[in-house]
């Protein structure tokens, strides 16, 4: 399952030699999958519901210019509880009216696009909007995982094309 998801997102051919390479890194692929579950569908989601997490992933994938990843997360989002009321927000240019969600999405966007500009004031902005310290850490893990996953599959696509 693990390797299937990464291989599928990377578009590896059924007989691609890269599949054997990924098998040699089976422990890493297994932990990648467990990490994916921990940030997208955790047992204790805190203030970030599974649906909101999938929505953040859709927006990040759109920003990253990765339509395959975007479709994967859109499918997950659209099956989520309460997705209907949030559907407009799949466009990352749209900002929610709700101040809490607005602060969360702004920060997710910063983590995706320009983490090097992050400052203590960004965390203070989240805290002023009522985002708990635990949710701030959960959000950072989610956005950071998405960057990891996008770069893993991007690198694999380059290797696949080079064969």
């Amino acid at each position: 399952m693990t390797m299937d998801l990464i291989a599928s997102l990377a578009g590896l051919a059924a007989d691609s030699p890269l599949r054997a390479l990924l098998a040699r890194r089976e422990d890493i692929m297994d932990l990648t999958e467990k990490s994916r579950q921990a940030v997208l569908t955790p047992a204790d989601p805190g203030g970030l519901s599974h649906t909101v997490r999938a929505l953040i992933a859709v927006r990040a994938a759109e920003r990253l210019g990765d339509p395959v990843l975007r479709d994967h997360y859109f499918d997950q989002f659209s099956h989520g509880e309460g997705a209907y009321d949030l559907a407009d927000l799949v466009d990352p240019a749209r900002r929610p009216d709700d101040p809490w969600l607005g602060a969360v999405f702004d920060h997710a966007d910063r983590l995706t696009r320009q983490p090097r500009t992050a400052r203590q004031s960004d965390i203070e902005t989240l805290q002023r909007a009522g985002v708990s310290d635990a949710d701030i850490v959960r959000l950072a893990e989610l956005a950071a995982f998405l960057g990891y996953q996008a770069r893993l599959i991007s690198g694999l696509r380059l290797m696949e094309a080079a064969q």
Partner: peptide, 17 residues
């Protein structure tokens, strides 16, 4: 690829929190 990718993750924690 894995080393660069996992550091994108680590950077986004350590540099922002």
């Amino acid at each position: 690829i894995l080393s660069a990718a996992i550091f994108g993750w680590a950077n986004r924690l350590m540099h922002t929190l």
